[in-house]
């Protein structure tokens, strides 16, 4: 797990915890738990929602740490300005990642078959044992975020962002490394400007 600090944000939003889990075995469970938690009433519901108070992101759709951080940053910024378009700052990350305006949770959130998950928690600097909170929900191998580009499903990323016919990709088509740099740049920039796109 890695932690990033944003001292200019209000304390309760100033700390971002990010972890990558590989060989995840309980994605379907996590997904149904989230759905159930959203419907639970009373103190039990609050406890369960608190236990699941993360963003769960399909790691195959993330190109780089910068891509992820950009989505997180824009979500936190929206929250700080009280202009969230979704219910929570965590779901706002999924909204920011999605280049179109529907199915952001279905595409970028946890699916039943996901084996690599990114888990994000936005909190105050003094939330203890965040990694413990994450591992108690996700059954998988905690991995280094440097592995992200190897997990990326570049074909699906290009499809979701409609990049296949773009001149930028045609120009870089011969060189895989070059093409990934270009895709990562377009995708990261798209996320950064989502709040003012169209």
């Amino acid at each position: 797990m890695q932690t990033f600090r944003y001292p200019h944000f209000p304390p309760e939003l100033s700390t971002v915890h990010v972890a990558l889990f590989n060989t995840v075995t309980n994605s379907a469970d996590i997904r149904s738990r989230i759905i159930r938690a959203s419907q639970l009433q009373g103190p039990d519901g609050d406890t369960e929602r608190n236990a699941l108070n993360f963003a769960f992101i399909d790691a195959r759709l993330i190109c780089s740490l910068l891509h992820l951080q950009t989505a997180i940053y824009q979500a936190v910024l929206a929250h700080a300005q009280r202009s969230l378009r979704t219910k929570t700052v965590h779901s706002e990350i999924l909204w920011a990642l999605n280049p179109t305006n529907n199915a952001s949770i279905r595409r970028y959130g946890v699916s039943d078959t996901a084996t690599s998950l990114i888990v994000v928690r936005i909190s105050s600097p003094d939330l203890p044992d965040v990694q413990q909170l994450m591992t108690s929900v996700v059954s998988g191998t905690l991995s280094s975020l440097n592995q992200l580009p190897e997990i990326t499903d570049w074909g699906t990323v290009k499809k979701y962002h409609k990049l296949n016919d773009e001149p930028a990709l045609k120009a870089a088509a011969k060189n895989v490394t070059q093409e990934r740099i270009v895709v990562n740049e377009i995708v990261t920039s798209t996320v950064a400007m989502k709040s003012v796109s169209s």
Partner: peptide
């Protein structure tokens, strides 16, 4: 900027918008 990026024009990438 995003239009240029998609068209393969070398321009700075976007990192945040407020």
């Amino acid at each position: 900027l995003i239009k240029c990026l998609r068209s393969g024009v070398n321009v700075p990438g976007i990192r945040m918008v407020d």
